[in-house]
Amino acid sequence: MYVALASTKFQPIIGSSTTFKDVMGVDEAKAELEEITQYLRDPVANASDHSYSNTGKGLFSLPFTCLGGRLPKGVLLVGPPGTGKTMLARAIAGEAGVPFFLTSGSEFEEMLVGVGAKRMRDLFSTAKKHSLWIIFIDEIDSFGGKRSHIDASYTRMTLNQLLVEMDGIVVIAATNFLESLDKSLVRPGCFDRIVVVPSPDVEGRRQILESYLSKILLADDVDVTILARGTTGLSGADLANLVNIAAVKAANDGAKAVSMVDLEHAKDKILMGVERKSSVISAKSRRLAALHEGAMH
């Protein structure tokens, strides 16, 4: 019996409004991606500045190759969840003003042999019909994990197809687990530029908090610097959630604005969990505990 498989139609995202100004706390990562953005923004003008012509061969016609070097075929964004990897990919397209394809590694995972590889071919064949488009593959570790001879053949075929297709198109991928990827993906000539997108530092957290806090009503006692210092380790997504929790709490309490108390409560809730009011020790229990400890000494 034959089963008809519905083909996946990859639709480009046109007119991304996200720019590098919207991505805060990852200045080093933005600097790493700037050269790709410069080329995508105006490849013909950049090429003419160095007496190069736009040959239509994608990355190999870059003006940055005038001294013999070349830009990477693929860029791999690595970092914890919620640090802005997908937002960075959207910002590249927004800065350059070009469409891009946004996909997930799970879209190529199929138990049937050959389906994932076919979808990979369809994605690149659609992208190659248009010059200078970006392909962004989120969670590439879904099919790009380390291979062995006992792996299912459908996983190996999808990864092999990606390695074959990567040529002349800006391919950006993201993962939370660099150590789990197959060596063929991170070798020179494939995803040969690894950009680390870490959790923001104190200045980055301050900028992110200011961005989210500007969208809500704040009381006069809110100090963003103090709040940023007390949120060590939180990602941009965590900070957005913190502001939202504080705004909801203030609204439930009937407040006219979000105060520092609301923000501190939201911070403690994220870092330590919900307050356990039922675990409050009574005065009698505290006295008995003190007597017991005193008797022990």
Score class of each variant (00 low, 15 high):
S259R: 02
L271W: 03
D262L: 02
H265Y: 14
L271E: 06
G254A: 12
L227S: 06
L263E: 10
V243T: 12
I245E: 15
L263M: 11
D253R: 10
K267N: 12
M260N: 15
G236M: 02
R229D: 07
T225E: 13
N241K: 11
D238I: 01
D268Q: 13
L234F: 11
D268G: 08
G236R: 06
N241S: 15
S235Y: 01
A266P: 02
L239I: 09
E264R: 09
S235Q: 05
A240C: 08
D221C: 06
D262C: 10
L242C: 11
G230K: 13
E264T: 13
K269R: 15
T225Q: 09
G236F: 08
I245Y: 09
L271S: 13
L263D: 12
D253M: 11
V243D: 09
D238T: 05
D220P: 01
L263T: 12
G233R: 12
N244S: 15
K269V: 08
L234Q: 03
A251R: 13
V243G: 03
A255C: 15
V261R: 07
M272C: 10
L263P: 06
T225P: 00
V258E: 04
G273V: 03
L218D: 08
D238F: 05
D262Q: 06
D262E: 07
L218V: 13
E264W: 03
D262T: 03
N244G: 07
G233L: 04
L239S: 07
S259I: 06
G254Y: 09
V248L: 14
V261W: 00
L227W: 02
T232M: 03
R229T: 05
L242V: 13
K249M: 10
A250C: 12
V224T: 09
G230S: 12
M272I: 04
